[in-house]
Amino acid sequence: MFNKNRQREDPEVGGAGMADIAFLLLIFFLLVTTIDVDTGIGLQLPPAPEENQDPPPIKERNLLNILVNVQGLVMIDDEPTPISEVKQTIKDFVTNRGQDPNLSDSPDKAIVSIKTQRQTPYKTYINMLDEVMGAYAELRNQASQSEFGVPYSQLEDEGERQQQVQDIYPKKISIAEPDEG
C-alpha cells in the first residue's frame, strides 16, 4: 500500500523558482558589466635588434624622417611642418611612384620613420601619429574604392580583399630609437 502511494507522487522538480534565480544572476551581471570598447591607435613594434647586426640598407629617397622635438614641433626631413600639413606630405611621399627624385620609388618601398626626443610631449606625438594613420587610411580607402567600389571599412576583416588593399599600401612605420637629452 505504501509503495502504491509513492508511485502516484509527482516526480517533477518545481520549476517556478528558476526564473527568480535567473533574474538574480541577470541583475548581478548587469551591474558588473561595462560595455565600453577599447579604442586606440594600433602599431607594430620592430623586433628587438640583434647584436652586431647592421640595419638593412634603405635608399634615402624611400625614407621620410619625422622628428617630434622637445617643443612639440614636427620636423619632416628637417623642415618644420605644421601638424595639419603632415597628412598631405605623407600622401605625396607615398604616392610619388618615382616621379619626384626626392620622394619614394613606390608605395610598398616607402617607409615613414618616426623619431622622438625624451621630453617630447605625448599629446603631440599622438596627434602626429594620428595624421600618419589618417594618411594611410585615406590612401587605402581610395585604393579600395577604385579596386572594389566599396570603402575600406566595408571590406571583410582579414579577408582576401582587405589583404590586397593592404598590399597596395603597406603601412611601414619605423620607430627610431630616440636621442638622449
Partner: peptide, 26 residues
Amino acid sequence: ESEFGVVTDVQEELREAGTLRINYST
C-alpha cells in the same frame, strides 16, 4: 601631459619581451 621618454623606455622593454603588438589608447 606625460613626456614621451618613459613611453620609449617601456617600448624598448616590450621589444625585448617580444610583445610587439601595441595600441596607444585614445
